[in-house]
Simulated assay, not measured.
Amino acid sequence: MACLNTLKHEIRVLESAFPKSDEVFQVVSASVDELTCRFISKTSKKYDIHANITETYPHSPPVWFAETEDTNVTNAIERLSNTVGKDNHVLQQVKLLLRELTTAFSMEEPPDLDDRLDLVSLPQIINGHDLHDHHEEYEDSEMEEEEEDMEEDIHLEMEDNTSSHAAQKDEDIHPSHMATLDRLKANQRQDYLRGSISGSVQATDRPEN
């Protein structure tokens, strides 16, 4: 999952900002896969709200749902599905959710909400992407290029070794025999062109010792 380190940090901030003792909003449980929150209205009615964090996070926002049909809650959740960029992050999602809920239930916004869910402490985010992920993508690309260059070098080295080996074999043949070998190759080539494949080397074609 992208931005895993950032997500873990956001979860810690959430748990610290909204403990189970909070009178309006509580983080009941939280992991990198799912978040369960509890909103408490001014009539002390409790609403459990869940968020599934998918593998595409934060490119897409968490998927929110609630165990209630109260339109105040369902409408607030629905608005969270239309966010983009940094608003897809969990801290920003919770901030938006709380503002929607407190407005819908005619309640005051929790004090210091922006300070509680401060994004400044998070790694710098550009267009919804963590710089840590960008660095990892760059390293992966650089590694792939190095592997390709290495494969090309090995291929060229193998070709050089093959050519050197062939040249070494030619050097091992006596000069007087090289002329005979060239003549045999030329004769065989002519035979193939004429459609007749030459047989064994004749005694007269064999080089003298």
Rank of each mutant, 00 (worst) to 15 (best):
E10N: 03
Q190H: 03
H59A: 11
F25D: 03
I11C: 08
E151N: 07
E142G: 05
S31C: 10
S176V: 15
N187D: 14
I154P: 00
M150V: 06
T180I: 09
E139M: 11
E145H: 07
H165Y: 14
V94M: 07
N161E: 12
T74C: 12
G128T: 09
E15R: 11
M107C: 09
N72F: 01
I125Y: 02
W64E: 06
D118C: 10
N5G: 12
E157C: 07
K8M: 14
I53L: 00
E100S: 06
T71S: 09
D160Q: 05
A167G: 13
E15I: 11
M143E: 08
K42P: 10
K45V: 13
L98H: 01
T162F: 11
P58A: 01
E157P: 09
D172P: 00
S106N: 04
V201Y: 13
E136T: 12
L156P: 06
L7T: 00
A179P: 11
L113I: 05
V90R: 01
Q202E: 14
L35E: 00
I49D: 04
R79M: 06
H132L: 12
N82I: 06
D87G: 04
D114I: 01
I40D: 00
D22C: 04
L119V: 04
K45F: 09
E152P: 15
I173K: 08
G85Q: 13
